[in-house]
Design a binder for these strands. Structure first.
Lengths: 206, 206
DNA sequence: TCTATCATGTAACCAGTTACATGATTTT
DNA sequence: AAAATCATGTAACTGGTTACATGATAGA
């Protein structure tokens, strides 16, 4: 039940498959939809990556070129359609991503695992800055939600943003608590921070 | 204040810089430390990537080869040391990662943004499975913490795991609520789920 | 009409991964 | 002493990014 390796792993491909359920499109249109539609906030999008991904999908038989349309004086564009295999892959992939958590490596976690390399007072200060940044992010997300809701988008299509808010709030709580624990002398955290080169950073016996 | 592009971007490099503050090491030893020390849970680690990263760091002048040691009958190993520039980069990088939040693209967010491509009943079921998986992850993390704490590792060196727990708990709450909102007929979520091909998946006017 | 920006794509480069290689040590 | 595993590294491949190219439309 585990570890099905995707033929095409890039998440842009997932969006492409999903969009193509609505009918054939050419790559540029896919990119535009992704941006205009806000999904570029959730899926890393680089214009050139799209062509690569579409090519990979074609080679994997999940998508196929249908026609080349010459629209006005524009350069000719190839239009792609979802194949049956593509439709199958789309739902399998989505089910996998939703149905069980996958291990990932956010940058902040990496930083936390090496935080002892900085002096504790600096960390306290930096956590303060991060809390400001988080507050800013939060209000950005709120305004994205408000704006979209105002434009009549059903809440279902904003559920990623709600998830982001949830995670963000948890991070705020964590940062506050972390800061307190560094300051509080009874926790012994400052003691663990001895910049004795023999033990700092790397806790070898772990 | 924003957007400083790191000469070497791979987070493995951050760990290398941090470890080398403890004194010169050869790549293999760095890898061993990373694993044994548990930081491989936080930083994606592939044995071959280490050599690449060390090479990049060398070219960037953040690290330099010191000596080649022939230890017993083992193949000769090159030992690397941190340069002054490396020390500077280490703290700048760490400060940046801690001091402000960076935009990332977790897989689950991508999946959520396309969730309307699956039928609602399936999503309810899948969220149930995910909740099980999250519970499992949670107990794994707890046991990592317990074991390390039992071995005398100060809590400071486990702070990433606590962060993970915080985020994980937030995700649990989110999933439960999401599930409820799909089921609850008064939210109108099911209505937005009309599999009318004209509006499904892509909410164009957003 | 000159310039800026949009539309559409290609190509070259670099990073990261998988797979291979080989001598040393340990287990059976 | 054969088999397995550890220690240590190289090489080849592929995916993704940045940078380049070029015709079309629109604004000044």
């Amino acid at each position: 039940m585990a570890e099905e390796r995707r033929v095409v792993g890039n998440l842009l491909a997932l969006a492409v498959l999903a969009y193509l359920t609505q009918g054939p499109m050419h790559p540029y249109e896919l990119g535009r939809t992704l941006q205009h539609n806000g999904d570029a906030r959730s899926i890393k999008y680089r214009h050139a990556s799209l062509y690569m991904v579409v090519d990979q999908l074609t080679r994997a038989g999940l998508v196929e070129p249908t026609e080349s349309v010459k629209d006005g004086a524009r350069p000719e564009r190839t239009v792609y359609a979802l194949t049956e295999a593509g439709r199958v892959e789309l739902t399998a992939w989505l089910r996998d991503l939703l149905g069980r958590p996958h291990h990932e490596h956010p940058q902040f976690v990496a930083a936390l695992s090496l935080v002892a390399a900085l002096p504790p007072d600096d960390v306290v200060e930096l956590l303060g800055h991060r809390l400001d940044g988080l507050a800013e992010q939060r209000s950005e997300i709120e305004s994205v939600i408000a704006q979209a809701a105002g434009a009549g988008v059903p809440a279902l299509f904003l559920v990623e943003e709600e998830y982001r808010l949830a995670v963000l709030d948890a991070e705020v709580v964590f940062c506050r608590r972390f800061r307190e624990r560094i300051i509080d002398p009874t926790t012994g955290w400052r003691a663990a921070w001895t910049h004795d080169p023999a033990t700092a950073v790397v806790e070898v016996t772990r």
